[in-house]
């Protein structure tokens, strides 16, 4: 990971989830859901199943939150769970379908081997992590500054307004928009190095 970039704070994330903190769960969902759906679409034969697979991943996480203690890398954990559920689905399809259609059979065989290819998996897992980190960094600059001051440095809105020479209202609206776009609790999960 390059210097100066935010990192995913695994331990805090996991310990909050274990305690049953719903906002940690929602943050995880908002960060990862769509990206995992894209991955599932790539792994499956029928893309329309991707969303329900990833929803199952999140339901499982919530269901098993007490036993997340063994997990050290939340990114890898989410990725692997998604992959495994897709693999199950492919196996299931294989059994269900009787191979009348030859082109379907080859296609399914290729997908099946692809999902188990280690090089490809590693590449995807790493890509996923770096895209998550990027998406955290995507807030507009001014918005992010104000958000950091408020949530990371714990300043009051009136103090920020004074420091930055802008109106109280502007501070409010920037923070509201940061929350609206992200609904993330950056302080808890992301260690931002300045």
């Amino acid at each position: 990971m390059k210097k100066g970039q935010p990192n995913i704070n695994n331990e805090l994330f996991l310990s909050l989830l274990e305690k049953g903190e719903k906002y940690a769960f929602e943050t995880l969902f908002r960060l990862y859901y769509k990206k995992l759906v894209q991955i599932a679409k790539g792994y499956l034969l029928y893309q329309q199943e991707a969303e329900s697979i990833v929803q199952n991943v999140f339901l499982k996480i919530w269901e098993n939150k007490e036993s997340l203690g063994e997990v050290t890398n939340i990114n890898g954990y989410l990725y692997t769970m998604t992959k495994n559920l897709c693999l199950d689905q492919l196996k299931h399809e294989r059994v269900k379908r009787n191979y009348i259609d030859n082109s379907y059979r080859i296609k399914s065989e290729i997908q099946y081997n692809f999902i188990q290819d280690e090089t490809a998996s590693l590449l995807l897992e790493n890509e996923l992590e770096s895209k998550i980190v990027q998406s955290i960094d995507l807030l507009p600059k001014k918005c992010k500054n104000i958000f950091k001051k408020s949530r990371l440095e714990g300043l009051r809105h009136s103090e920020i307004a004074e420091q930055m020479g802008i109106s109280h209202k502007t501070v409010d609206s920037h923070i509201a928009s940061a929350l609206r776009h992200m609904r993330l609790h950056l302080r808890e999960f992301i260690s931002v190095s300045q």
């Binding site: 790539g42 290729i110 692809f114 090089t119 490809a120 590449l123 995807l124 895209k131």
Partner: peptide
């Protein structure tokens, strides 16, 4: 092909 596919998915 696997390489191309992984890159495309990324």
């Amino acid at each position: 092909y696997f390489e191309a596919k992984a890159e495309y998915m990324a």
